[in-house]
Amino acid sequence: MGRPRTNDATVKERLVDRATELLATRAQESVTVRAVATAAETSTAAVYSLFGDKEGLIAAVRDRAVASLFQAVTAVPTSEDPLADLYALAVAYRRWGREHSHLYSVLFGGVQSFKPSGAAVGTSDPVRPLVKAIDRAVTASVLDGEATAIAVSLWVTLHGLVTLELAGAFDTSTAEAAFRSTIHATLRGWTTPEVFRNLRHDEPAF
């Protein structure tokens, strides 16, 4: 019987799967090439053949996470209401985090991790749809501020909420209420004075 192939697509997928699981539950420095290869039931040679080294494997895991999140947020439809669209993007981000907690942990386990590599740079940036929606809202005089500053404010708030939820800081009902009220408050804080006055009198539709 010949030796099992160590460089085919199936082995590559399995290595990325096992690396994702290990990186989500252990410190990055403790995840060795041997540990991933053992978990994937292959050899360390397969890792080096397919990814070059450990950093190449970790980059592949990050790229998968970035692409998955990008797919989730770009699937959000655009409406005539910029605030509703921004809220929908926040909902999509939270849903992705809850449904892909392993990938979320890998992607946001460290600030330096949120960087796609190779061909993924610039083509699958999950922040791009958010900035685009914010640009629309600023152009429509719904939000008042610089798009990047607004995006950072919203993303930091959203990331904090999802991270706390995944860590078990909230029960289901508390998490839902905290998400809705906090995202609404963050968006209201960036609205133009006229829009803000209207939102103060009416329950936000977004």
Rank of each mutant, 00 (worst) to 15 (best):
124 S>R: 15
63 D>G: 13
89 L>W: 09
125 D>F: 03
109 G>F: 04
95 R>Y: 09
46 A>Y: 04
94 R>L: 01
45 A>E: 07
96 W>R: 05
109 G>A: 06
91 V>D: 10
59 A>C: 04
77 P>L: 01
106 V>I: 03
67 A>T: 14
73 V>S: 03
72 A>L: 01
75 A>T: 15
95 R>T: 15
97 G>M: 00
52 G>D: 06
114 F>E: 10
123 T>A: 13
43 S>I: 09
59 A>I: 07
57 L>F: 06
111 V>L: 08
93 Y>M: 02
101 S>W: 06
69 L>P: 12
77 P>I: 02
121 V>N: 03
98 R>C: 10
101 S>P: 01
120 A>M: 12
92 A>Y: 04
94 R>M: 01
64 R>N: 12
74 T>S: 07
87 Y>D: 11
82 P>N: 06
81 D>I: 04
107 L>M: 09
125 D>K: 04
52 G>M: 00
85 D>C: 09
113 S>H: 15
72 A>D: 01
112 Q>Y: 12
45 A>I: 12
103 L>M: 12
122 G>M: 02
54 K>V: 13
107 L>V: 11
87 Y>F: 15
110 G>F: 05
46 A>K: 01
105 S>E: 07
75 A>Y: 07
127 V>Y: 05
84 A>D: 08
53 D>T: 10
86 L>R: 06
66 V>L: 00
104 Y>L: 00
55 E>D: 14
86 L>V: 13
99 E>T: 15
119 A>M: 02
44 T>E: 04
68 S>V: 07
57 L>N: 08
118 G>K: 00
106 V>W: 01
89 L>D: 06
69 L>Q: 14
52 G>W: 02
93 Y>I: 03
53 D>H: 09
94 R>P: 06
46 A>I: 04
124 S>F: 09
